[in-house]
């Protein structure tokens, strides 16, 4: 089979070459410890007395995760291979480099590999005398009826943002952890894939999706969805997603929400705004008020076509945290 076309040099070098490029652009806000090529740290975020927020996961989801490292959001990131959890060492390196003496909070999507590697990192930090805790993100409501088994997907950006703002406001680790769990519990995502992605090492589609069909509820690693169906219109897709999210969210009229309409990589902004138009109509019908919105590629799956919609059910505690300024390589606010 013909190889998918990518602008790369060598399949196994993609992550390190990408990091070299990112560091070359953003040397004013990001740095890497010389001994830790897969740990990237915010220059202006970490400081004495502040909880260090360390995020991480596989590559191929940019701007998730590395794009959210900066003052006001994450202090550091452990960077894995494409779609693969980082090993424990870069997570330890990032945590030690960003440590301000007030504890370390690891946040990442709920995947078996990430949990094993970050748990090993926590054990290693304990031996260094550094307290580390973990909050997993589980916003993908299509991935399981059991919340503890759900995956973390595009809603990460809101959840990390709330926790990062709390840490930036110098809240103690108990509070930062509580807010992280609170933000995760109120964030709901569901998506559809219109085409497979392909890994740079294999350059073959990760799964086969025939023309005219879409995957409903797929993950962000090209995992097949929970259901496959015929491709439908933007409004029909939005309605199915919103029906599912609103039912589970069960918010009273007048509640405020943050919205993310996210591209999985290949779907253009034109289509995202078409989806957003319908999201806004549906939220208005439901009597919900949109407080803020993000539209664009925030959590991608390499070159996959498709989109996800995230709704975060805000409250008086989350609103100032979502509005809090941040200055990251791929996400700025305020």
């Amino acid at each position: 089979m013909a190889l998918t076309q990518k602008l790369i040099n060598e399949g196994n070098a993609t992550v390190d070459e990408m990091l070299d490029g990112i560091l070359a652009v953003h040397s004013d806000t990001l740095w890497r410890p010389s001994h830790a090529p897969r740990a990237v740290i915010a220059k202006h975020g970490p400081r004495s007395g502040k909880v260090a927020l360390i995020i991480g996961g596989g590559s191929g989801h940019e701007p998730t995760f590395i794009g959210f490292v900066g003052k006001g959001l994450a202090d550091g990131v452990a960077v894995g291979n494409v779609f693969a959890s980082p090993p424990p060492q870069p997570a330890v390196d990032a945590a030690l480099a960003a440590n301000g003496g007030a504890g370390v909070l690891f946040m990442y999507g709920n995947y078996a590999g990430d949990v094993m590697n970050f748990d090993m990192a926590m054990d290693m930090l304990e031996m260094e005398g550094v307290e580390a805790r973990t909050v997993l993100t589980t916003d993908d409501i299509a991935s399981s009826p059991d919340i503890s088994k759900r995956r973390g997907v595009a809603g990460n950006v809101f959840i990390f943002k709330a926790a990062g703002a709390a840490a930036d406001l110098m809240m103690p680790i108990d509070e930062v952890e509580r807010i992280a769990r609170h933000a995760n519990a109120r964030t709901y995502t569901m998506g559809v894939a219109l085409s497979s992605c392909s890994l740079p090492q294999t350059r073959q589609p990760s799964f086969d999706l025939p023309a005219g069909e879409m995957e409903i509820g797929m993950g962000i690693h090209g995992e097949p969805g929970v259901r496959r169906g015929p491709l439908r219109t933007a409004n029909e897709v939005t309605d199915e997603i919103l029906d599912t999210i609103l039912k589970e969210m069960n918010a009273p009229k007048g509640a405020r929400v943050a919205v993310l309409v996210n591209s999985l990589g290949a779907t253009p902004l034109m289509e995202l705004y078409i989806l957003y138009k319908r999201v806004a109509e549906r939220l208005a019908e439901a009597g919900l008020e949109i407080h803020s919105s993000l539209v664009g590629p925030y959590c991608t799956s390499l070159d996959m076509a498709g989109a996800s919609i995230t709704i975060m059910h805000l409250d008086d505690e989350l609103i100032p945290l979502i509005d809090h300024p941040c200055d990251c390589a791929m996400f700025r606010q305020g």
């Binding site: 596989g58 894995g80 291979n81 693969a84 959890s85 980082p86 090993p87 424990p88 078996a112 590999g113 094993m116 590697n117 090993m120």
Partner: peptide, 8 residues
């Protein structure tokens, strides 16, 4: 070298 699930 790998992390992932198979690494640990």
């Amino acid at each position: 070298a790998v992390g992932a699930s198979s690494g640990p």
